[in-house]
């Protein structure tokens, strides 16, 4: 872990980065923000860890816990909303059997989340499955896709 953090630290120095870019880099590397990594940087930069924590919890992009292997994102922008994204969300939650207090399945295979508009409103409703954008999605199609992934795992 330390080697990876050193690399991020170097990049931060070279690119005149800031605390947000450090967190983005850590997340890029580890998939989430490990507590240890934050304390490591806190010591390197003599910046209180609380400051990192404040930033990490402010921006919705950051995750403090590891995420699922497959990330399903349903857009809930206005266009998607009026075109029925609510239904997609309900069917996905049901299909994935998500626990009450978490958006990641217990087996760690799926993370499911809503996002504010991905800017593909003209093909609403939109779902992003592992970074691939699916437009004009329906609940049936989404369930089919999810089952497909489950089958291949």
């Amino acid at each position: 872990m330390e080697d990876k953090l050193e690399t991020i630290y170097k990049r931060f120095k070279e690119n005149e980065g800031n605390l947000i870019s450090i967190l983005q880099d850590i997340q890029e590397e580890f998939g989430y923000l490990p507590e240890k990594a934050i304390y490591w940087f806190s010591e390197q930069l003599d910046v209180p860890p609380a400051m990192f924590y404040g930033i990490a919890t402010f921006y919705s992009q950051f995750y403090l816990k590891p995420r699922g292997k497959n990330v399903i994102t349903v857009c809930s922008g206005t266009a998607c909303h009026v075109k029925g994204s609510e239904k997609l969300i309900n069917s996905a939650i049901k299909e994935l059997e998500l626990p009450e207090d978490s958006n990641t399945t217990e087996d760690g295979l799926f993370t499911f989340e809503k996002v504010n508009c991905v800017g593909a409103c003209s093909i609403a409703p939109v779902v992003i499955i592992n970074k691939k954008v699916f437009g004009k999605m329906s609940a049936e199609k989404l369930v089919k896709e999810l089952r497909e992934i489950k089958k291949n795992e």
Binding site: S76, G77, A79, H81, N116, C117, G119, C121
Partner: peptide
């Protein structure tokens, strides 16, 4: 930082 849901002019 086009954040309005339902807008994608800047992206385009």
């Amino acid at each position: 930082d086009e954040g309005d849901p339902g807008a994608f002019m800047d992206r385009a």
